[in-house]
């Protein structure tokens, strides 16, 4: 068990009333597996992911990484050392090249990074399907699919075991989607990562090792 959420409560105060997005939600994830979380728009998928990635904190409940409360690890520290996040809108730095974008987290993390970080970054991009010539391009001169690959490479750059993605294929066509799914499967099954993907896509749900459904603040497993 690499990641565990316990009794998460997250609500917005609506006047006198609390509008719960997550209600006593508990779930756990393991290494080497590819997870999908589905749910209707507005059901709270992004909220859950923001709690798992320590970009937000719940009103109650805990998230533990390798049995340790991430609050205790420290949110910032957890983000720079333990988790890689992929966003729907890529969120790359437009004034940097692809390889520079991958180098950014390497200079932030405290994880061990090989001496020649530039080579590692090029190799990572190559592994994800971005060749040398594209790697040296400014990212706003890459296609959406290519940009999302760079974002995946960036999430992998710090050599973390946990990858969280919020609708990574939301802006991509089916062909591109399949390529991304293949990468996630490879990461989980060949590289022992834990990959958690929040999505609307049934394709991802079908190809995942385990899929959850979020409805009315409650997370349930498809089987």
């Amino acid at each position: 068990m690499i990641l565990e959420a316990k009794d998460l409560n997250y609500y917005y105060q609506d006047g006198e009333q609390r509008r719960y997005i997550l209600k006593d939600t508990s779930v756990s994830f393991e290494k080497g597996k590819f997870y999908a979380i589905l749910g209707q728009s507005g059901s709270g998928k992004t909220t859950l992911l923001s709690l798992l990635s320590a970009l937000d904190s719940p009103q109650s409940g805990t998230v533990s990484f390798n049995e340790e409360d991430i609050k205790k690890i420290g949110y910032e520290k957890y983000r720079r050392n333990n988790v890689g996040i992929i966003f729907q809108s890529y969120n790359l730095i437009p004034t940097f090249t692809a390889v520079e974008n991958v180098l950014v987290p390497m200079s932030i993390t405290e994880n061990e990074i090989p001496e020649d970080s530039k080579t590692v970054a090029y190799n990572l991009l190559d592994f994800i399907g971005i060749g040398k010539s594209k790697a040296d391009r400014f990212v706003n001169k890459l296609s959406g699919g290519e940009q999302q690959r760079v974002a995946i490479a960036r999430a992998l750059a710090t050599n973390v075991e946990l990858i969280l993605a919020d609708e990574p294929t939301g802006n991509l066509d089916e062909e591109m989607e399949q390529e991304i799914i293949d990468i996630f499967k490879k990461l989980a099954h060949e590289h022992e990562k834990c990959v958690i993907v929040v999505t609307h896509s049934n394709e991802i749900a079908l190809q995942s090792d385990q899929a959850f459904h979020l409805r009315k603040g409650v997370l349930s497993s498809y089987e």
Binding site: L55, V104, I108
Partner: peptide, 13 residues
């Protein structure tokens, strides 16, 4: 803003 947010999301102090 977005660039700065990215640094923070990556755990930059």
């Amino acid at each position: 803003k977005r660039e700065l947010g990215i640094y923070l999301s990556l755990g930059e102090r």
